[in-house]
Every structure is written in C-alpha cells, then in structure tokens.
Amino acid sequence: MQSDPIEKYINKVTKNMGSKQREEVGRELKAHILDSADALAEEKNVEVDDTIIQETIKRMGPAEDIADMYPEEKAGKDNIIDGLKYITRSLVFFVVAASIIGIVLQLIFKDLSLYPFVVVAIIVYLVIMGIHFVKRKFIPKFLQNK
C-alpha cells in the first residue's frame, strides 16, 4: 500500500516517455523518494508511513511540471508504438461511434439501408477524431510535418 502513491506519482511523470527512459527515470525517482522519506521520517523521529510519503512527494513538485522538464528521448521503436496506439485508438473510436449511430438510426428508421448509415458513421467519426485532436493536442509523429 505504501508504494501506491509513489507509483502513481512516477506514472504521471513518465507517462509520455519512451520505454527505456520511463524505466530509468522511474527507478531513479523511486529511489530518491524512498531516500527522502527515510530522511524526513528520521528528522521527525517517526516511522515512514503514508503521511511521510505524501509529504515527500509534495516536496518533489507537481508531476506534470516535472514531466515537462524532461528532454524528449523517444527512440524509433517508441514512435512505432505511439503510431500503433494511435491506430488502435482510432479504430476503437470508429467502432464505438459507428455502433452508437447504427443503433440510433435503426431505432428511428426501421428499414435502413447500409449506405446512409456508413456515410453518417464516417462523418461522426471524423468529428469525434477532430475533437480528440483539439482536446489532446495529439498528433502522432509519423503524421507530423517534418
């Protein structure tokens, strides 16, 4: 239980890193938090507990700010993984959007042909993806202009 807030903090810091960087940074930050917690507990003459861990994490600074300070070190493999994640996410969006539209249209128009359904599903899919891009500011590396 004690390590949960540490893992949570480290995951927030490392979530956008490539696998090698994530592993190294996570290991280093975890060792630091544990060292720092030991020192704080000794200073207060108490055992390391959740309160000490929380205070130590607070001293580290906001995870999002720390994450932004790290240099980007993604390897080619990480970009491929990002690309695959993007394609998977897109397909899931499409299937979900198409299913919802399909169910709604079936309920409204009992004898619906496939063609208008596909057109509406694609339009809705594009709108959802557009909102997704704007909200997440996420464009995979292989689609970015070099």
């Binding site: 940074v25 280093e28 060792a31 630091h32 001293r59 600074g61 300070m69 790290y70 240099p71």
Partner: peptide
C-alpha cells in the same frame, strides 16, 4: 547520486524543488 546532490545543494543554502534536479541531470547527460 541525485539525493546526495540535493543534500549538498541544501547545505550550501541553495534550496531546490527536489523533482527538478532529475530532468536537469538527464539534460546535462544528454
């Protein structure tokens, strides 16, 4: 190592937010 560096900086009177050291070390190493 990182924790040791922070302790040394604190001892010299330079207070740093602990988490900020590691990205800096990574950049200097890079």
């Amino acid at each position: 190592y990182g924790y040791e560096i922070i302790k040394n900086l604190n001892d010299t009177g330079l207070k740093v937010e602990e988490g900020t050291l590691y990205p800096l070390l990574r950049r200097l190493e890079g």
